[in-house]
Amino acid sequence: MSYQNILVETNDRVCVITINREAKLNALNKDTLAELHTAFEAAFADAQVGGIILTGAGKKAFVAGADISELTELNTYSATAMATGVHDDVMNLIENGPKPVIAAINGYALGGGLELAMAAHIRIAADNAKVGLPEVTLGLIPGYGGTQRLTALVGKGKALEMILTADAIDAPTAQTIGLVNQVVPADELLPKSEEILRKILSRAPLAVANAITAINAAGTTDGYATEISGFAGCFNTTDTREGIAAFLEKRKPVFTGK
């Protein structure tokens, strides 16, 4: 597949998707969002891919926000359609995907960029990164899941503070409040992200997928039922039998994803 706005490279089960609009600080326009949808669907379906790292080209920005020029002609109806499409085709696709996704935040992650990072399962930030949701400075509110995912990650009070003030915060602060998992020097960002992903890939793939589903259901009326279903379903897999046997035999398990 040939892409105009992103780069996709897979090496030994790790797929790296890079938003490649460095001159525009990797801003999310409709074409980039469409390509992200295609790339993630392909990666999730590809048996040769175990997990995905999502990052931005260059050193300045992961994604500095949405492409504001595309917002000028929107009205209530077209904005509803656009936001719904982004939710379904990109943000929810990533969050509910069966394979782990790590956002490697290599600079500014603002507005839609932070919303994209929050859709990933784990966030690793460079020490020079800054994150925030500045939409109210445009007379808007976050529309790609920001009000919901930020609240889930950092709590209602901090989410209100960040969204209502529109202030960006630095990477160490983001880690302190639970918005990012780890902060590392910029030149260690991708190696650390790959290290974490490869550790996940050494675990049972079907169990990882079930864990993602159950954690995403946390706080819903179906949360505990989803966990029980996922737990019980693992006993239909070869990997569960292998994992238990390996533990009892004091050896390293060999998982096959079956």
Rank of each mutant, 00 (worst) to 15 (best):
I124S: 06
G233E: 09
S202L: 08
A103F: 10
E227D: 10
T237A: 08
D187Y: 03
I244E: 07
A246K: 09
N92D: 15
A159V: 11
R251I: 13
A168W: 02
G178L: 09
V136K: 11
D239H: 05
D88C: 00
N92E: 14
L116A: 03
T72N: 12
A207N: 10
A166M: 12
M1A: 15
L164W: 01
I102G: 00
L150R: 09
A66G: 06
N5P: 00
P191F: 05
I17H: 03
A214H: 02
L114V: 10
T32Q: 01
L179Q: 05
G112C: 07
P134I: 12
N210T: 09
G65C: 04
L110C: 10
T38P: 04
G111K: 08
T176K: 14
L54R: 02
G257A: 10
R149C: 00
G85D: 02
R198L: 11
T151W: 01
T137R: 14
S229N: 13
G50Q: 04
D239K: 02
F44P: 01
D88Q: 11
K30V: 13
A126M: 07
I52S: 00
T173N: 07
T84M: 02
G146I: 08
I105E: 00
A129K: 06
A117P: 03
P185C: 06
D12T: 13
M82L: 11
R21W: 08
N181L: 13
F231K: 10
T18Y: 01
E188A: 06
T165M: 06
L179G: 03
L190E: 06
T38F: 05
L71H: 01
L206W: 00
D12V: 13
I105S: 05
L74V: 00
A64C: 11
P253Y: 11
I52F: 01
A232R: 14
T237K: 09
T147K: 04
Q175L: 04
D187G: 01
A23P: 06
E22R: 13
P142A: 11
Q4Y: 09
K252H: 10
A214N: 04
A66L: 12
K252N: 12
P134F: 05
I102N: 05
V8K: 12
G155M: 02
D167Y: 09
A81M: 02
T84Q: 05
D12F: 06
T221R: 14
V90P: 02
L7V: 14
N29W: 13
L138F: 14
A34S: 13
E161H: 03
Y3H: 14
V183L: 06
H37V: 03
G139R: 03
R203Y: 15
